[in-house]
Write a protein that binds this DNA or RNA. Structure first.
Lengths: 219, 219
DNA sequence: ATCTAAGTTTAGACGCATCTAAATTTCCTG
DNA sequence: CAGGAAATTTAGATGCGTCTAAACTTAGAT
């Protein structure tokens, strides 16, 4: 059997759920891919038979080395494309995700190489996500979410690329990967987190904060 | 039902067979798409039900306006992409066809527009094929093949993009759209056509000549 | 004009990716 | 620790796009 676009999507999604630290369960995959849980079970069985993941009924899945390899290849395509579309074609950063989602399955290895070369073999995409290298070791540093980080000055490392609306809002208030912001105070009961971006103060609702990842800055 | 990549491929292929002046019969479509004639018949029925073509059993098909519209949109994508890949990404002209074949289904209208703008709304792709406009009238000028043209000076207008090997050969001898060449003599019984490109003389076998389209040059 | 070869369509099947509804298992709560 | 809610899997079905083998139609040659 061949590796279809759909198979690539499953593997990529499973990889990214696992990276986030959560167990990889049927429902989560189903939610992300917008298919029914039953569809996920059926696909998981096929992926397992193909050796891309190990599967224990009712317990969730784990990617094998060959599954991870495919996932990283697709993710590399995705992130290179996001950067390319933004830099070379001027597509606004809140729209590059959806374009890349389709194109990631359509570019050849030659094209991938050409794009990487033109961009100067970049290490991060416009949302701060690291780009897996063509070959060799790949380690993703895990950053705290805005919610979990301690008050004080922090650097924005990464922003989830999945919600265009959130991205437009973040761009508007000047919050991008690389920006230094200050977490002002925290409400222990899950209320909004107040942050200072430049000279302005903003309330970040909980549905937003889970999408921004930061690291502590020493001053 | 939705317009899948496969549907787009059928409509595009049917358009281009019709343009070449041949009747559009099952076997021809099957050969081009590398599927069985039975598959073509079955797909044709669906396309007919969708209103993309008219179909008379055993007689061939003809695109409707809505079928033509989709075909031209895909062809526009294809040709813009060929040009873009060549100009902006430096992909050699004998490889852009295969890349574009996949990407043509993957780019959004926004991306199409961005590419067209960057290229300055071009009218022809690297093989000399005209690029259908986003909207408005589209007429393809039909040129003679090298075989059919009269001896004398001619301008290369178009070269079929389908065979990478032929393209590499043509590039090697310096024959591209825009080049002026001289047809030296003709063998009425289908032998090679001798042409002068620059100062060199070349024999073009019949399997080659059907792929080069020229127009007479007045001197 | 008939017969045959080539082209085309039908019949029936298969794999992929999905769905809904029903059955099963897990896990949490009282 | 028992019972029910939530998660998961099974069963069975569907549409797409393809195939092979067999039947049929068309057109060309004698």
């Amino acid at each position: 059997m061949q590796v279809t676009d759909t198979v690539q999507d499953y593997l990529k999604t499973i990889y990214s759920i696992a990276r986030a630290g959560d167990g990889v369960h049927t429902t989560v995959i189903a939610d992300r891919l917008k298919v029914s849980p039953a569809s996920v079970t059926s696909m998981i069985k096929r992926l397992s038979a193909l050796g891309y993941l190990t599967y224990t009924r009712y317990q969730g899945v784990e990617l094998t080395d060959s599954g991870t390899e495919i996932a990283l290849e697709v993710i590399r395509h995705h992130r290179l494309l996001e950067l390319y579309l933004h830099h070379s074609l001027g597509i606004p950063w809140d729209r590059v995700h959806d374009e890349a989602e389709v194109l990631e399955h359509a570019i050849s290895e030659d094209l991938e190489d050409a794009i990487a070369r033109i961009l100067g073999d970049p290490t991060h995409d416009p949302h701060g996500d690291p780009i897996p290298p063509k070959s060799g070791v790949y380690l993703e540093v895990l950053h705290d979410t805005l919610e979990k980080a301690e008050p004080g000055p922090v650097r924005v490392e990464r922003v989830s690329d999945r919600d265009p609306e959130v991205l437009r809002h973040l761009a508007k208030i000047g919050l991008q990967p690389g920006t230094e912001i200050v977490i002002e105070r925290k409400d222990p009961y899950g209320g909004p987190v107040w942050v200072k971006v430049g000279k302005r103060r903003h309330a970040m609702g909980t549905e937003l904060t889970t999408k921004v990842y930061v690291s502590k800055v020493e001053r």
